[in-house]
């Protein structure tokens, strides 16, 4: 488990992080979302030992972050890049060797990953001859080559086409299944919602929400009933006590209940008013939860 606790970081007078704490457990994918400049990259760089925190701690598997523990982590920086004139297998293997693999092991692992990630190129091709999408796959291979126990990926999906997104998501899923913890940042909230086990929202250097999507939805504290009733009486709700109409979207009414257990009474009233085509507690999407969280 990666355990980040109470990180503080300032750049001159600018406070970049205030008391940032988060955990990434083995075998889970954690999405890290926040606006540009919210502190995602700074947190990740501190977690990789690239920046020093003013205060706070990073621990991996109960050990304080050290040069040796860091070699067991895989990293994809936001500012991506590899050596343009280096051959791709050589390059991926090189990063494996830098993290302590033997030359043979690194080469075999590099060749295997390049195949698994469907990189379309000759193994001896120089990186600069590849398309951008293929270069990005090689970049991922460079983060995975040494079979890391934890992945820290800063916007791994940025710039990928839909097929690339699926490939990347598939690779992360496979790593999760193998027990690897993954922390990744992204602005693509639908994607985060789809593939993450937990989500952490950061704004202005503070963590403002964290948990599973269901937990976030619950924590939002504004569960709404959503229903569609084919009725001749548009005011049927008006008579119900403790029920407030929040709005109507695409023919569906959204109701907020003072007491959630009144939902059955609302259903009964709706059935009385007409044919109930849809009834259920609304699950707000992450994008909505995110906007609310960062506005608070």
């Amino acid at each position: 488990m990666l355990d980040i606790s109470n990180l503080e970081k300032s750049y001159g007078s600018v406070r970049a992080l205030s008391g940032v704490s988060l955990q990434v457990r083995d075998g889970e994918i954690v999405g890290f979302v926040g606006a540009n400049g919210a502190g995602k990259s700074t947190t990740m760089r501190i977690a990789m030992g690239l920046l020093a925190a003013d205060a706070g701690q990073v621990r991996f598997r109960e050990q304080p972050l050290s040069f040796a523990t860091r070699l067991r982590m895989g990293y994809m920086p936001e500012s991506r890049g590899l050596y343009p004139k280096m051959r791709i297998v050589d390059q991926v293997a090189y990063f494996g060797e830098l993290r302590g693999m033997t030359a043979d092991d690194a080469r075999a692992s590099a060749a295997r990953l390049i195949q698994q990630l469907d990189v379309l190129a000759e193994p001896n091709a120089q990186l600069q001859t590849l398309s951008l999408g293929n270069q990005q796959r090689v970049q991922l291979a460079a983060a995975l080559v040494h079979r890391p126990e934890l992945l820290i990926l800063d916007e791994p999906f940025a710039g990928l086409d839909p097929v690339g997104v699926d490939t990347m998501a598939g690779v992360l899923g496979a790593r999760r299944a193998a027990g690897v913890g993954v922390l990744f940042s992204s602005h693509q909230l639908d994607l985060v919602e789809r593939i993450c086990d937990r989500i952490i929202i950061i704004t202005s250097g503070r963590i403002v929400a964290s948990g599973t999507l269901a937990e976030l939805q619950q924590a939002a504290g504004r569960r709404e009933l959503e229903l569609r009733v084919d009725t001749a009486d548009p005011d049927w709700v008006g008579d119900l006590p403790g029920v407030e109409v929040v709005g109507s979207v695409a023919g569906r009414l959204r109701l907020r209940l003072d007491r959630p257990e009144d939902d059955q009474a609302v259903l009964a009233a709706a059935m009385h008013a007409g044919r109930v085509e849809h009834f259920g507690w609304r699950q707000p999407p992450l994008s909505e939860l995110y906007r609310e969280a960062v506005q608070e």
Binding site: Y75, G81, L82, F95, L98
Partner: peptide, 15 residues
């Protein structure tokens, strides 16, 4: 080259 291609951050995560 290592700065302009931005490979340096990846390098420094290992060395």
């Amino acid at each position: 080259e290592e700065k302009s291609t931005r490979v340096v951050e990846l390098l420094l995560s290992a060395v």
